[in-house]
Structure formats: C-alpha cells, structure tokens
C-alpha cells in the first residue's frame, strides 16, 4: 500500500511545467490559426487535426495527470481512442471509396438535399459541364 501513497504525492507538479504546457497550447493555437490561411488542399484538415490531437494529448497527460497516474488509466484511455479510430477509419473505407468499381448511377433521392451541395459546387467549378442534373 506504500505505492498508493507515493502515487498521490506525485500529483503535485512544479508550476513551470503547467506554465510550459500552457505556453505550448498557445503556440499550437497560433499554428492552427496561421495554417488556416495557407491552402494545403486536403492536407489542411490533416494538419488541423494533428495539431488538435497534440493539444488534447498535452492537456490529458499533464493537466489531467494521466502521465503520472497508474498506467491502467492511460491504457484504458488509449484503448477507447483506438476503438474510436477503428469506427471512423473503417467507416471511411466505405464513405471515401464508393463508386470505384461500379460508378454510382442512381439519381439523388432529393436533389436539393444538403448532402449534394458540395458535389454541386465541385461539378460547377469543373470543366465538365455536361453534369447539369437540375
């Protein structure tokens, strides 16, 4: 039970670590803002998500003490993140890859629906002007 007592005392961190992490969070926020003015194509989202993940990791590890706590909490936290990643990535195997083998020929059920707006704006920008559904 000695380990338990030392576990708790380890919670107190020097102030400079908190300030350092806080400063890092500000810097990363600045990076997010700046990168939004640069057009990286699809990579904008990737970079923004990467920066956000680093920030979340800093908060969780230092402010929420996950780094210093019993490692089982970190394991559980990472497991949960892992399953969330599985849900999103495997779903994207579907949503990002539709119509590869057999192009989708079906007409939209409701052409004016919001889901098609992005496609419309893309097709109107593209050179191919034969695609005027409505």
């Amino acid at each position: 039970m000695k380990a338990k007592a030392s576990d708790h005392s380890a919670h107190i961190l020097p102030l400079r670590i908190y300030l350092g992490v806080g400063f890092a969070l500000f810097i990363l926020t600045g990076i997010t803002v700046m990168i939004s003015f640069v057009d990286l194509g699809g990579w904008n989202v990737t970079v923004a998500l990467a920066v956000a993940s680093i920030k979340a990791a800093l908060v969780v590890l230092f402010f929420m003490h996950l780094l210093y706590d019993n490692k089982i909490y970190l394991t559980i936290f990472l497991t949960a993140i892992g399953f969330l990643a599985i849900l999103i990535i495997f779903t994207m195997f579907d949503t990002m890859e539709r119509g590869r083998l057999y192009p989708e020929k079906a007409k939209p059920i409701k052409p004016g629906a919001a889901i098609y707006e992005r496609e419309d704006s893309l097709s109107s920008r593209s050179v191919d002007t034969t695609k005027t559904d409505h």
Binding site: F90, F93, D94, E97, R98, R100, L101, Y102
Partner: peptide
C-alpha cells in the same frame, strides 16, 4: 468482433473496398 461489422452491409451500397476488407 469490432472489425467485422460491415458484413451486414454487403448489399447496402457500401464501397467495394470496405466490403472486401470486412
């Protein structure tokens, strides 16, 4: 069990790639 759910959607209009993986 967490990696196979797409086998319920082989004829639901899921992408061919996802269907193969699942």
């Amino acid at each position: 069990s967490f990696l196979v759910w797409g086998h319920h959607m082989f004829v639901s209009g899921q992408s061919e790639l996802a269907a193969m993986i699942f």
